[in-house]
């Protein structure tokens, strides 16, 4: 899985050029307006608006497809279950199975909300570098401790993933988890039986050692990085003589007329969806 959420941040589009702070305010409001939708009638305009934003962002469709891969399974589960469990109006019956109208409506609403919110979140975070996103959040009031932790965690994601891949490969090369599930006694017979729904304690211990080693290996790297950061002045308040501009994040870029128009348009759309909820 590609962990880079901002791999297409270098593209050029109307959404890419949008001021990060205003983009964050506009699209987050729209996401929450979508979350408040409770009627299937609003689903079609919701999908159209989302499609419009995605088209404006110039993001490739494969980006969305990749990101939908994992949550798609969950969606599939909901689609497969709810129409058979929810409601009283039976549309079709086969034995004890009854397809119900209310269940189908609920599935349509949940699936459309889910897809629209996920797509808008990708448009929001995929059209600017992650650092810019965190800076925009910081300028909107995100506490500095949370901002620092977010940036460092994002940096460590790659380290920890690489470490885990290396360690798993090393374990595989040494024969762990490859047909050694049964420990054989000298006579060649299996000495331990495995029962359904009971985890093997040796396997559990092996995985605990893998996870523990992953923590420790990454922790030591984190300590080195932290010491390097301290040496460069992290955690100290800048002295008045020192040019603070070197340590503090630069002020967010000023918004243009185009940014403000886009924000007002997005907020107006969000307001329409919230009003539609009351009217329909």
């Amino acid at each position: 899985m590609n962990l880079k959420i901002d791999q297409y941040a270098h593209l050029d589009s109307l959404i890419h050029r949008w001021n990060p702070r205003l983009k964050l305010i506009g699209l987050t409001t729209l996401i929450f307006a979508f979350a408040s939708t409770e009627s299937l009638k609003i689903a079609v305009p919701m999908v159209m608006v989302t499609g419009g934003f995605f088209w404006l962002s110039n993001l490739p469709l494969k980006f969305l497809r990749h990101r939908l891969h994992y949550p798609g399974y969950l969606l599939l589960g909901i689609v497969a279950l709810l129409p058979w469990l929810l409601g009283e109006t039976v549309l079709w019956q086969w034995g004890f199975l009854s397809l119900r109208l209310e269940g189908l409506v609920a599935v349509g609403l949940i699936a459309s909300r889910f897809l629209c919110i996920l797509t808008l979140a990708l448009v929001l975070l995929g059209t600017m570098p992650f650092l810019t996103t965190v800076k925009a959040m910081r300028s909107l009031g995100l506490p500095s401790l949370l901002a620092d932790m977010t940036l460092l965690s994002y940096r460590y994601l790659y380290e920890v993933t690489d470490n885990l891949t290396t360690m798993r490969r090393a374990m595989k090369l040494r024969g762990f988890g490859q047909g050694h599930r049964h420990h054989h006694s000298s006579s060649g017979h299996s000495s331990r039986r495995r029962f359904a729904f009971v985890p093997d304690s040796h396997e559990l211990n092996r995985l605990a050692s893998l996870t523990g080693s992953l923590f420790i290996r990454s922790y030591e790297q984190a300590e080195h990085i932290y010491k390097a950061m301290r040496l460069r002045g992290y955690g100290r308040s800048p002295s008045p003589q020192f040019n603070a501009a070197h340590l503090c994040p630069p002020a967010p870029p000023l918004s243009t007329r185009h940014d403000r128009v886009l924000l007002v348009a997005t907020l107006a759309i969000a307001l329409l969806f919230i009003l539609a909820k009351w009217l329909l």
């Binding site: 460092l152 994002y154 460590y156 994601l157 029962f195 359904a196 396997e203 990454s218």
Partner: peptide, 23 residues
């Protein structure tokens, strides 16, 4: 912060470690 950030990343990555509970 470094320890917390690291454990945050590990919290994310460790969710990909699966424990076999047959089947």
């Amino acid at each position: 912060i470094p320890k917390a950030a690291l454990l945050t990343a590990t919290f994310f990555v460790a969710s990909s470690i699966h424990i076999p509970v047959p089947p």
